[in-house]
């Protein structure tokens, strides 16, 4: 699982750039540990929902809008990747 994370991270970066139509940002420019919202990439709550919808479509993980962990999950690309990997793993285990 440790090897899989970097792949999912670069996928996520591409997803962020594609979904949010960021013109002057390249996927490889995004730092996995930098803040996605606010100071880092400068995305806001409108972008957050778009991203959450794209992620649930792509990876089949549900992100609830009233989840208190959202702030932490969406803190950085790394956190997002960890969350997705964990959710998918627990889904697999449930099957």
């Amino acid at each position: 699982m440790g090897e899989r994370e970097p792949e999912i991270e670069s996928e996520l970066k591409k997803l962020i750039v594609d979904v949010l139509a960021l013109e002057d940002v390249k996927p490889e420019d995004i730092d996995s540990e930098a803040a996605i919202f606010g100071a880092g990439l400068g995305l806001d709550s409108i972008d957050a929902l778009e991203l959450a919808l794209a992620i649930s479509k792509r990876y089949g993980v549900k992100i609830k809008s009233d989840d208190e962990r959202n702030r932490e999950i969406f803190a950085s690309v790394r956190n997002l990747a960890t969350f997705i990997t964990r959710e998918r793993a627990s889904k697999e285990a449930a099957k």
Binding site: S45, I46, L49, A52, S65, N70, R71, F74
Partner: peptide
């Protein structure tokens, strides 16, 4: 308008 959660702006737009 939500309660200031990370998705509030997006939900208002929708």
């Amino acid at each position: 308008g939500g309660a200031g959660d990370p998705f509030s702006g997006g939900l208002v737009v929708r």
